[in-house]
């Protein structure tokens, strides 16, 4: 049984293999995929989405190059590490706070785009400030850890 299903949008302008890379990363972030899980085989993806099998393999190679998955010849492609962080899981307090905020935004009369614009502007402010601080420091470590 496949653990994830890819949705391919042929008109999005985003290269098909990149759509698969992004969807695997999203599944890793959300904890839908965990270390040791097997990705669907190229044949399974192709049968469901009618895309070229080499596109699937190209996506898996890219994920392999980034150290997120590994190909085991004859067995398939397996997740090596997760991108999920405890604070970002579906049942985390941070998510609950955000859900509460979204409810209040809607009650205040904001529509989806208004709310998204607010969130984006706050994210830009907060994260760009952090990045600015880090870049200002010699030998700063990138934000992303190894695990």
């Amino acid at each position: 049984m496949a653990l994830v299903e890819f949705r391919i949008d042929r008109r999005s302008g985003v290269a098909t293999y990149l759509q698969i890379v992004q969807q695997v990363k999203q599944a890793l972030r959300l904890g839908l995929l965990e270390p040791g899980d097997k990705l669907p085989t190229a044949k399974e993806v192709v049968a469901a989405t009618a895309i070229n099998p080499n596109t699937v393999l190209k996506a898996y190679r890219e994920l392999d190059r980034e150290g997120l998955v590994e190909a085991r010849p004859g067995l398939g492609t397996f997740v090596r590490r997760s991108l999920a962080r405890p604070g970002a899981s579906a049942d985390s307090p941070l998510r609950a706070e955000l859900a509460g905020w979204a409810e209040r935004a809607r009650a205040a009369g904001l529509d989806r785009e208004d709310a998204a614009a607010l969130v984006t502007s706050v994210l830009d402010e907060v994260f760009d400030e952090v990045r600015g601080r880090l870049e200002g420091r010699a030998g700063a470590q990138p934000l992303e850890g190894t695990g």
Binding site: V46, A47, P53
Partner: peptide, 14 residues
């Protein structure tokens, strides 16, 4: 068309 394309791509993959 989608089913036939998927069948073709599966043939290519296998």
């Amino acid at each position: 068309r989608h089913e036939m394309t998927a069948a073709l791509m599966t043939e290519a993959a296998e």
